[in-house]
Simulated scan of single mutants.
Amino acid sequence: MVPLPKRLFAELLGTFWLVLGGCGSAVFAAAFPSLGIGFAGVALAFGLTVLTMAYSIGHISGCHLNPAVTIGLWAGKRFPASDIIPYIIAQLIGATLAAALIWCIASGKPGYELAPNGLAVDGYGPLSPGGYALHAAFVCEVVMTFGFLIVILGSTDTRAPSGFAPIAIGLSLTLIHLISIPVTNTSVNPARSTGPALLVGGEALHQLWLFWVAPILGAIIAGVVYRFMAGDQPVPDITGEPI
């Protein structure tokens, strides 16, 4: 097994790439409307970040990039409890550094403001792209994260075709964003939500609780449900190889 410090650095780097690629595509596309990539482009950007990092660091850290994934894998008996907190800390640092870099780059455009849409924060009510209420945002995040973890657990199962897990996981994250960007701007990842919210502050920070509670709840349910369906499996990384 790769030593924990190296795995933590890989998680930091991977989460940095996820937030930079996903939130960065949303922020910079909004900054230049004539070149905008739209919801579909942002959704694809998030999926591609996970896919590329899964092939790059999956064999090092498992490529979780997401506290909900880490906790969901633990609930599915795929990850040791002793490593949960260090992984989450590394993911939060990576997400916050990426949000800061996005702000640094975006602030170079005249008229840019560090408002909620300036860092692609997640939210409900006034912070929801489509104006969706709290209960809709909560249900959406629980269900989307549940589906994401089912795909992760299933595609990394030792009985699944080997080597294709990153593709299934990346495409599932793309699909999730296509569904839920209008509702919450899509989290399914507490680290992705925390980095931008810490910099924006205000209402974005007040609403952050939902984007911890709902994704973690969905992930735990998925871990339990998948174990019920498939039984316990050896601990794999996100590419399906043992770590």
Score class of each variant (00 low, 15 high):
33 P>V: 11
34 S>E: 15
35 L>N: 14
36 G>W: 11
39 F>P: 12
39 F>G: 12
43 A>F: 06
43 A>E: 08
44 L>R: 07
45 A>N: 11
45 A>V: 13
46 F>I: 11
47 G>I: 04
49 T>W: 06
49 T>R: 04
51 L>G: 04
53 M>L: 12
56 S>N: 10
57 I>H: 11
58 G>K: 03
58 G>H: 01
60 I>K: 10
64 H>Q: 13
65 L>I: 10
65 L>K: 12
66 N>F: 04
70 T>N: 09
71 I>A: 05
74 W>P: 04
76 G>V: 00
77 K>D: 13
77 K>T: 05
78 R>M: 10
80 P>Y: 10
81 A>Y: 09
88 I>P: 02
91 Q>C: 02
98 A>I: 00
99 A>H: 02
99 A>W: 00
100 A>G: 14
100 A>D: 01
102 I>C: 01
103 W>D: 05
104 C>H: 14
105 I>L: 13
106 A>M: 00
107 S>H: 13
108 G>F: 08
109 K>A: 10
110 P>C: 00
117 N>S: 15
118 G>M: 00
120 A>N: 05
125 G>T: 02
127 L>E: 01
128 S>H: 02
130 G>M: 04
130 G>V: 01
130 G>R: 07
133 A>N: 13
135 H>A: 14
135 H>G: 07
136 A>F: 12
137 A>M: 06
138 F>I: 14
138 F>H: 11
141 E>H: 03
144 M>E: 09
144 M>Y: 05
144 M>T: 06
146 F>W: 06
146 F>N: 10
146 F>M: 10
151 V>C: 08
152 I>E: 09
153 L>I: 08
157 D>S: 13
157 D>P: 14
159 R>E: 12
163 G>E: 04
166 P>D: 03
169 I>R: 12
